[in-house]
């Protein structure tokens, strides 16, 4: 087939040129198709969540009410208890993670040489890949099985710490490496000790990048569900106490409504009526969670753009 084609082709095209062109075109098509394939689930999923979730979000009381006393038979309900729980758990997690992660990153970039540094880098990699359910089991094994604690919100925070630390360490590391050595030298040349150089010169210079890393870390853990299942019960009512009792969170609310999805028919006035209150709330909570995470991601990008390093 090649020879037949090439017999008629001009001198400029050697034998096989046709096949080669076809292959090239096929590859180009496939590459473009791959990109299109990635867009399909993203757009489809976002459309689903927005179109199904917007109803609850625009209802009065979604951001102020709770699920107290509301069953799958009842319309309405709010997500305030879940938003509050998520914010509290994530805030505690951030407060613990940030100092540790910053110190680890500083250690790796500014001090680390030798076996401990190599080991630390490796372990941060492993921590990046640790499944959230394993992190949760670990916290369970330590604080509940061993020390006899009760399931509560702060244990979720601890499990999330293990997921957040590697995210912040990695971004901070990159940012510290971007700080020009000239600035460190300028500081040393003024007779400033190393630790003050790091704290007062290097960290402020890398600050926006570090904040980006922290925000990305928050976005990463805010939607994490597995630790909730093991480490805290779901409460339909508001519980602001991280250290005692069941506590709601956005993923917890989604999970709770999901388990009510099956019950869609109720008796009303002697007639069977199909309802979708649980589904409404589930998608409402999903949209709330996505909005929270997306806002955090956008914020991270805006902050990253205002970086002093680049």
């Amino acid at each position: 087939m090649t020879t037949v084609e090439s017999a008629g082709s001009s001198l400029a095209s050697p034998p096989g040129a046709g096949i080669r062109k076809v292959k090239d075109r096929t590859a180009t098509t496939l590459v473009y198709a791959a990109f299109a394939i990635a867009l399909v689930p993203l757009i489809w999923l976002l459309w689903t969540v927005v179109s199904k979730g917007i109803y609850m979000l625009t209802r009065n009381g979604w951001f102020t009410g709770t699920e107290r006393g509301i069953t799958y038979r009842d319309a309405g309900g709010g997500a305030w208890h879940a938003v509050l729980g998520t914010l509290e758990q994530v805030a505690l997690c951030t407060a613990i993670s940030v100092p540790i992660a910053l110190l680890v990153a500083i250690y790796l970039v500014e001090y680390g040489r030798g076996p401990l540094a190599r080991m630390t880098t490796f372990m941060v990699d492993i921590l990046t890949g640790i499944p959230s359910i394993v992190a949760a089991l670990f916290i369970y094994a330590v604080f509940i099985t061993t020390f006899g604690g009760e399931r509560s919100g702060w244990l979720v925070s601890l499990a999330l710490v293990m997921l957040m630390i590697p995210v912040i360490v990695r971004t901070t590391e990159e940012m510290l490496k971007l700080v020009p050595n000239e600035l460190r030298e300028a500081s040393y040349a003024l007779g400033v000790p190393k630790w003050k150089t790091i704290v007062r010169i290097v960290l402020p210079t890398a600050m926006s990048g570090i904040v980006t890393g922290v925000v990305l870390g928050i976005a990463r853990v805010a939607g994490e569900t597995a630790p909730l299942l093991i480490l805290v019960g779901y409460s339909p009512d508001k519980n602001a106490n991280l250290f005692s009792g069941p506590q709601a969170s956005l993923p917890g609310l989604i999970k709770d409504q999901f388990s009510n999805l099956g019950s869609t028919t109720i008796l009303e006035g002697g007639k069977r009526v199909t309802v979708h209150y649980a589904a409404d709330r589930m998608w409402g909570a999903a949209l709330t969670l996505i909005l929270l995470v997306m806002i955090l991601n956008l914020a991270a990008r805006v902050i990253a753009r205002r970086s002093a390093v680049n």
């Binding site: 110190l103 680890v104 250690y107 921590l127 640790i130 630790w195 003050k196 704290v199």
Partner: peptide
């Protein structure tokens, strides 16, 4: 002392991650 404390702190954080795993 600041230099020592700070260096120990950062190395301690590194050690913490290793110990955590």
């Amino acid at each position: 002392i600041g230099d020592r404390v700070f260096a120990s702190l950062t190395a301690g954080a590194g050690l913490f991650v290793v110990l955590l795993i």
